[in-house]
Simulated scan of single mutants.
Amino acid sequence: MEDDGAKSSPAVHPALAPLSYLLGSWKGEGEVGFPTINSFSYGEQLQFSHSGKPVMAYTQKTWKLNSGEPMHAESGYWRPKPDGTIEVVIAQSTGLVEVQKGTYNAEEKVIKLQTELVGNATKVKEITRVFKLVDGELSYEVQMATNQNSLQPHLKASLKRL
């Protein structure tokens, strides 16, 4: 990001190597649903970047497909550990904050995350995220639990590298 004019970007930190396939920009479409809302589709772009440190920066933005009007946005950091665990912190544009822990499988290219903490939320109690890379396509599923609904599907998307 502050890399403009730099002749080369820093080398990927060895801790990020198992997840280096995520680095770059991804774009596609997703679908949102939950018992308390009407389902609809949306456009989405994700970006994973690094500064040479053992952490990946993450940004996400979504928009309405018909108008391009901005919708949700979030950003955070992904910290993979050598033992196959990962810590993720995400701040959402809605004011909600997630601290997630989980695991990654570098060979199968699967990352599973579970909230340790959902901060500044009155209704959301739990969030899980599963990311998979299959045939060059990055997909994810998000499940959510609220004070009125148990953990169930909320978001899913399929993205292609830009």
Rank of each mutant, 00 (worst) to 15 (best):
F40M: 08
M1F: 07
G33C: 13
V142H: 02
W78H: 02
A73N: 10
Q152A: 11
K27R: 11
E69H: 06
G95W: 04
N149S: 06
H13N: 14
K81Y: 02
S51R: 10
A145T: 14
M1W: 09
I37G: 03
P70D: 06
L46T: 00
S93D: 04
T128W: 03
L19W: 07
H154F: 09
V89C: 01
K109A: 09
Q152H: 12
K160F: 11
S9L: 15
Q60M: 05
S93V: 02
S9C: 12
G24C: 12
R161T: 14
M144V: 11
P70F: 03
L133N: 15
T128L: 02
A57P: 00
E29A: 06
Y42K: 04
G28S: 02
L113K: 04
I86L: 13
G43N: 10
A11G: 11
E69F: 01
D135T: 13
A157C: 02
E107C: 05
S139T: 13
T115Q: 06
D4F: 08
G76M: 08
A121Y: 01
V134A: 12
M56G: 03
M1D: 07
T128P: 01
E141A: 04
P82D: 11
E87M: 05
T36W: 11
H154V: 08
G76V: 03
W63D: 02
Q114L: 12
P153S: 10
M144D: 04
S39C: 00
D135W: 11
K81C: 00
T36L: 12
L113T: 03
K7D: 09
S20C: 08
G24M: 12
S9Y: 14
M144H: 09
S158F: 07
V12F: 02
V97T: 08
K101H: 08
G33F: 07
